[in-house]
Nucleic acid binder design. Structure first.
Lengths: 104, 104
DNA sequence: TCCTTTTATGAACACCTGTTCACATATTCA
DNA sequence: TGAATATGTGAACAGGTGTTCATAAAAGGA
């Protein structure tokens, strides 16, 4: 496997950029179980609807979340399994690092 | 699965931050097959040894790469499989998105 | 229509980060 | 020891990014 033969490196860096912000991670976290609207997410992550909307725009632009209209509100959900797997392995990496730290 | 019950969200965002820079992705790319020293990496990615060294420090601080001394030079290699898997799924996500774009 | 609720967006500001430059450190060889 | 090669590091600058604020747009109810 080699990155540059598969996809554009800039494109890949922009994809991963989405995961490096705490607010976006918290938003993804609330969406892992079920779809939610902006105001619900806003309450859960404790940030303004405006801020959440900005970040959802980022997440949507890179296909991390998808939307569906529910009357007055808009529901957001995680778009595919890749996202959940990447989050899972990120979490595992950190957990293993902590386990190893015990023996240092 | 829920992020905040598993690990600290800030810690996770800092881990993913490493993947969102083109230079670091290129460095990881050159290290996927085999370990290399700073000057070799520097030539491959086309950046100064100083810049590469700075970024390797980032990668090392979050346990993405490990080092081993070879006389005068220092060899770097990818520390574990998590990193390769995360890269793999990132690449797949982008590839699938492109495939879907064809039908729009 | 008018008001309310929900979501989206542009501008501005503060903060963070990557690169460069200069220099320091370390190791090998003559 | 002295020179050369390899790597590490601190400071500073430029560029990018997230949040806030004000405001707009869209949809439903009275």
């Amino acid at each position: 496997m080699s990155i540059h033969t598969e996809v554009n490196v800039k494109e890949l860096s922009e994809f991963f950029k989405v995961f490096c912000d705490e607010t976006r991670l918290r938003i993804l976290d609330t969406l892992i179980d079920k779809e939610k609207c902006v105001s619900d997410i806003s309450l859960e992550v404790g940030m303004s609807p405006s801020c959440v909307s900005h970040q959802l725009k980022n997440l949507r632009s890179l296909n991390l979340v998808k939307t569906s209209k529910n009357g007055q509100s808009v529901s957001y959900s995680i778009s595919d399994e890749h996202i959940k797997i990447i989050l899972k392995y990120g979490i595992e990496h950190i957990k293993e690092r902590k386990d190893n730290d015990i023996f240092r």
